[in-house]
Design a protein around this nucleic acid. Structure first.
Length: 334
DNA sequence: GGTTCAAGCGCG
DNA sequence: AAAGCGCGCTTGAACC
């Protein structure tokens, strides 16, 4: 018998599953019992130990990846951390940031935000971040031409609230927190090509309830359903999908007899035009913003891109002018 | 000393 | 059986 390493995360988790009596919902090919991740993560509501372990993992990630590593990556010449952006990595046309990755600096947790606070501008300068609001859903509205969705955006509505009002048949100001949360999950799910099954798992409701939400959504936004169906059909016919600006993603597996590969290709076909068009738009904005920055006497520099967000370094006295101009360039393209 | 893989985490 | 897209980094295990 092999030595039993109690510090092996896998073994620890395995023992924990038994002690906590989490159900075995499937087995791996080798016969090892296995529980879905969500089951394990949900168990933290009932059990103290999983809660502590998940908290520990999050903190360990922050320490090992950011707190300990980033200071080592400071360039001695400039005193800054410099990333490399790669243009031909992500299939959808996004940039990817490497060595170090500055597109995944923490922000979602309070502890993570403390790490982000370490990123500062030089004396006399400030960081200016400008991001697109709901850009992929706006693109979905554009591509689908759905009247209801286009109207909601034209009226600058809170889109998740507006969706909830439509799907649950209530007035916008009567939408509950849970209804908005569900609508948000539906909206994200649509962008990702998610099924009713996936939505059910995400929301913790029954499959039939999730199916009801999806059906209701498509009744309210029929253009979106038409668009989704047309995109799948087009991908299957042509073997590729493309963005508004013509960037293509080839999907040979859309005709695979392997159902898993075929469905994955379908989800990619749904997602790529939206994610890819967003990538095209911000790249054009980057060119416009940088050209503006390079003009004489403009005390602002484009220093980072995070998919739907541009970050600039701006001289303090120029901040409001820069914010206005960057906003204009990002929405109108110059 | 190195590589490769999976798991698990960070972000949009 | 799997059933939500796109990424990168760290860790530990297994192996050379």
């Amino acid at each position: 018998m092999r030595p039993f390493n109690l510090e092996s995360p896998k073994q620890l988790q395995q023992i924990l599953f038994e002690k906590l009596q989490l159900p075995v919902l499937r087995k791996t090919p080798s016969g090892t019992p296995s529980r879905p991740k969500t089951c394990w993560r949900n168990s933290r509501r009932r059990h103290l130990l999983p809660r502590h372990i998940l908290e520990y993992r999050g903190l360990a990630k922050l320490r090992s990846t950011y707190t300990e590593k980033l200071p080592e990556q400071i360039d001695p010449d400039t005193g800054r951390v410099h990333t490399s952006y790669h243009q031909a990595v992500a299939a959808t046309g996004r940039l990817s940031s490497m060595d170090p990755n500055l597109q995944n600096i923490p922000i979602r947790s309070p502890e993570g935000r403390r790490i982000r606070q370490a990123f500062i501008a030089p004396p006399g300068y400030r960081l200016l971040a400008a991001d697109y609001s709901q850009i992929e859903l706006r693109i979905m509205a554009h591509l689908s031409g759905d009247e209801g969705l286009l109207r909601a955006f034209a009226e600058e509505r809170d889109i998740h609230q507006a969706t909830a009002a439509e799907v649950f048949g209530v007035a916008a100001d009567a939408v509950s927190h849970d209804q908005r949360r569900s609508a948000k999950a539906i909206n994200f799910g649509l962008i990702y090509g998610m099924s009713a099954f996936g939505l059910a798992r995400q929301l913790g409701v029954s499959r039939s309830a999730a199916q009801t939400y999806v059906d209701l959504y498509f009744t309210r936004y029929p253009g979106v359903r038409r668009y989704m169906e047309a995109t799948r059909a087009q991908a299957r016919n042509d073997g590729y999908v493309e963005t508004v600006f013509g960037r293509r993603l080839y999907l040979p597996e859309i005709r695979s007899r392997n159902r898993q590969l075929q469905q994955y290709a379908e989800r990619s076909a749904i997602n790529a035009p939206m994610q890819g068009t967003a990538a095209d738009i911000i790249k054009r904005a980057m060119i416009a913003v940088d050209q503006w920055c390079q003009r004489d006497d403009i005390p602002a520099r484009l220093i980072m891109q995070v998919h739907d967000e541009l970050v600039l370094e701006v001289r303090e006295d120029f901040l409001s002018k820069a914010a206005a101009e960057v906003g204009r360039l990002m929405s109108e393209g110059g």
